Simulated scan of single mutants.
Amino acid sequence: MAPRALSLAGCILLATPLLAGCKLVDQRTFNPQAGKPPQPYIPPPPPAPKAKPPFLQIEGGTPESEYGPVVDQAVKSALARKENVLFIVRLLVPPQSDPAAQTKAMTEATQTDLEPVAHRISAAGAQPIQIEMHALTDPSVQRPLIRVDVR
């Protein structure tokens, strides 16, 4: 038996280097993600709601004779529906190249466009406390634009 045991030991010694390159069969053989911590699915955020259209929109430079009757009718309609309605008047001005030009454009647009619209809203029956005014820069506009929203 010694020769047989010796030949068996020789076969094992010759086969051992061949088995060193083998990979053991385990869970990862069939599922590469086995044993790794789970990655929770985080859904993308829902799309932002579409912006509501403004109650009124007036392009800068429009004469008061054109927008005046529309503003009067809209203000009276809003006040008839809700006595304590708040009129939010926003002036949107395109951005300028430097801060001095931006300040000048904002000041001019406020005096020529924003204030007359606010005065017209007041003349149509709204109390001054019901009018909130803002002047903002907005890169999406090409010319000054007045938007009136109600709350």
Rank of each mutant, 00 (worst) to 15 (best):
L14P: 07
R151Q: 13
A135E: 05
K82D: 11
A20F: 12
D98F: 05
P38H: 12
L24A: 14
Q111G: 14
T107S: 15
I58S: 00
R143I: 06
I88L: 07
G60A: 07
L145C: 02
D98T: 03
K23H: 13
S122Y: 06
A123P: 07
P128V: 02
S97T: 10
P54T: 07
C22A: 15
D98W: 01
P99E: 06
A135F: 02
K76M: 14
A34D: 12
L18S: 04
L136F: 11
L92Y: 02
P116S: 06
A100C: 02
A48Y: 07
K76C: 05
I146Y: 02
P95S: 07
D72C: 01
Q102N: 03
M106Y: 04
Q130W: 09
L145D: 00
P3R: 05
A34T: 03
Q39K: 12
V141E: 02
E59M: 12
A9W: 11
L6A: 11
A80W: 06
K52G: 10
P95W: 08
L91N: 00
L114W: 02
G68D: 07
T16V: 14
G60K: 02
P17R: 05
V117I: 11
S7F: 07
Q102C: 02
P69L: 09
A15L: 15
S7V: 10
Q39F: 08
V85I: 14
C11L: 11
L19W: 15
S65W: 05
K36W: 08
D26L: 04
L6R: 12
V25D: 09
I146M: 08
P144C: 11
P53N: 10
T112K: 15
D72K: 11
P63M: 00
E66L: 13
I146P: 00
A34E: 12
R81T: 08
C22L: 15
T62H: 04
V75R: 00
I12S: 08
K50Q: 14
K76Y: 08
I131S: 00
Y67K: 03
L56F: 05
V71C: 13
L145M: 12
S140G: 08
E115I: 12
D138L: 01
I42Y: 07
A48R: 15
G10Q: 10
T16C: 11
V70Y: 09
P17H: 07
P3W: 01
G35E: 09
E64M: 11
I131T: 03
L14M: 13
P37Q: 05
N31D: 15
S97Y: 07
D98C: 01
S65C: 07
I146D: 00
A20R: 15
R28C: 10
A34I: 09
